[in-house]
Simulated scan of single mutants.
Amino acid sequence: MIAYVRLPYFAISLAYRDEPSMTGPLVLGGYAWQAGQVYAMSQTPEQAGVRAGMALRQAQALCPDARFLPADDARCRQLFEQIADAFATYTPYTEPEPALQHAGCYLDLRAGDARQMARMLHCQIEVQFGVHLRIGLAATKHAAKIAAASATHDPIHLIPPGQEAAALAPLPLATLPLDAETVRQLHLLGIYTVGQFAALKGGAVLGRFGKTVYTVHRLALGQDPRPVAPYHYKQSEQAGCSFDDPLDNRQVVETTLHQLSQTLAQRLDPRHLIARSLALDVHFEDRTRGHAATTLREPSADPRRLGAALADLFSRIAVESRIDELHVTATDLVPPVARQLSLFDSGETQRTRLQEVLGHLAVRHGASFYRSTVVEAFPYLPERRVRWSALEAV
């Protein structure tokens, strides 16, 4: 039995979870007056016609009552990866399917009682991560995904083996992975449901629409030979701590972050890995959460650099309550790359490196960065010894 675990409105559910007082329709991607695009939306804006990638101003015109907030794509992806890791503890055949609106994951549960495992998984993930799940069970991947989308009253919906085609038949063509032009042509032929599409001869579908649509026709018949791919863990390392008495002293927090950076470094050292990215999660006493993430300019496992980066991340988080827990995550772990040092560095190499540094400074500071050039070694007046000019003019 294959399970499809659906995370409906994943990014939106995280926003509601982190700010329990927030209610009403929500659109993520930026503020309504900004020139950005929609990242994700709740059910009400979606029903009003708002779609991912749409301009924010257009989304506001379609759903003026919605609240618009910036999206944190890195955080959503990080949490989804953590949830996928939790899924993989049930079966090594776990295939994540990240998406902006409704993320999901396939799991091969044929090694045990699929329904019982689904119940256990549902309880664990909802309690651990605070997100809602819908689980579909079927003999094939496509049928399991449809079952998860059909789970409304009961969070777990089962399509018995052998009844995949009958369960799919009354559904509209939109439930199949068909492009808009193919759907339009099928509508012209009077075909509006999956069952009507499945009733067509396979050879006729292949000759009229090609191999891709023929593959979808097999899905409509309940035939889906695709296996669930084995799971590949992403390299990451975590450290955290909780406090019996919530913290309200910034100095103690920074000391704790430094200790967590040392813990990360000690865990990375025996694995011979260095971190490219760091994330900090802060759990407050009022049950709200703060999150910040960054990509290091150079990958590192140095506790001093990690500690400085964590302190910078903490400064980005608005602290409006005492702190209950601190969690740090090092991701994008890679092995260090050795660099051969020269015993006799030539002046030309030093000059090249200097030009590279000056180029980086020019990009960062533009015309506000100045460089001094010696004009006279022993001038009559000291101010005539050097000439200052903008870097771009050098």
Results as ranks from 00 to 15, higher is better:
residue 2 I to H: 12
residue 4 Y to C: 07
residue 6 R to W: 06
residue 11 A to D: 09
residue 12 I to T: 02
residue 15 A to Y: 00
residue 22 M to P: 08
residue 26 L to F: 02
residue 27 V to L: 08
residue 29 G to V: 04
residue 29 G to R: 04
residue 30 G to V: 06
residue 36 G to Q: 06
residue 37 Q to G: 06
residue 37 Q to R: 14
residue 38 V to T: 07
residue 39 Y to R: 13
residue 40 A to F: 00
residue 42 S to Y: 00
residue 42 S to M: 04
residue 45 P to Q: 07
residue 46 E to Q: 15
residue 48 A to K: 11
residue 50 V to D: 08
residue 55 A to C: 09
residue 67 R to H: 12
residue 74 A to Y: 02
residue 78 Q to N: 07
residue 78 Q to A: 11
residue 79 L to P: 02
residue 79 L to F: 05
residue 94 T to K: 10
residue 97 E to L: 12
residue 105 C to R: 06
residue 106 Y to P: 13
residue 107 L to V: 11
residue 110 R to G: 15
residue 112 G to C: 15
residue 112 G to V: 11
residue 117 M to R: 14
residue 118 A to F: 03
residue 119 R to C: 09
residue 125 I to R: 06
residue 129 F to T: 00
residue 131 V to N: 04
residue 131 V to A: 07
residue 140 T to K: 04
residue 141 K to Q: 10
residue 143 A to C: 13
residue 145 K to R: 15
residue 146 I to R: 03
residue 147 A to M: 05
residue 148 A to K: 08
residue 148 A to W: 01
residue 160 P to K: 04
residue 161 P to R: 07
residue 162 G to W: 08
residue 163 Q to I: 02
residue 163 Q to G: 02
residue 174 A to K: 02
residue 177 P to F: 06
residue 178 L to H: 00
residue 178 L to K: 03
residue 180 A to N: 03
residue 181 E to D: 15
residue 191 I to Q: 02
residue 193 T to G: 00
residue 194 V to Q: 02
residue 195 G to W: 05
residue 196 Q to H: 04
residue 199 A to K: 00
residue 200 L to C: 03
residue 201 K to G: 11
residue 202 G to D: 08
residue 203 G to E: 14
residue 205 V to M: 03
residue 208 R to E: 00
residue 217 H to M: 02
residue 218 R to I: 00
residue 220 A to E: 05
residue 221 L to Y: 01
residue 221 L to N: 03
residue 223 Q to K: 02
residue 227 P to W: 01
residue 233 Y to S: 11
residue 238 Q to L: 08
residue 247 L to S: 03
residue 249 N to F: 13
residue 251 Q to D: 10
residue 258 H to D: 14
residue 258 H to F: 05
residue 260 L to S: 01
residue 263 T to V: 13
residue 264 L to M: 10
residue 265 A to R: 11
residue 268 L to V: 11
residue 273 L to G: 06
residue 281 D to R: 14
residue 287 R to Y: 13
residue 287 R to T: 14
residue 291 H to L: 12
residue 293 A to S: 15
residue 296 L to S: 12
residue 300 S to G: 07
residue 302 D to M: 05
residue 303 P to M: 12
residue 309 A to T: 12
residue 310 L to D: 06
residue 312 D to G: 11
residue 313 L to M: 04
residue 322 R to E: 13
residue 326 L to S: 05
residue 326 L to G: 06
residue 327 H to R: 15
residue 328 V to L: 07
residue 329 T to M: 09
residue 344 F to S: 10
residue 345 D to V: 15
residue 345 D to K: 14
residue 346 S to Q: 11
residue 349 T to F: 15
residue 350 Q to I: 14
residue 351 R to P: 00
residue 352 T to I: 15
residue 356 E to C: 14
residue 359 G to H: 10
residue 364 R to W: 07
residue 368 S to F: 11
residue 369 F to R: 13
residue 374 V to M: 13
residue 374 V to D: 07
residue 374 V to L: 14
residue 376 E to R: 05
residue 377 A to L: 13
residue 379 P to K: 09
residue 383 E to I: 10
residue 384 R to A: 12
residue 384 R to I: 06
residue 385 R to S: 02
residue 388 W to E: 07
residue 391 L to M: 08
residue 394 V to D: 03
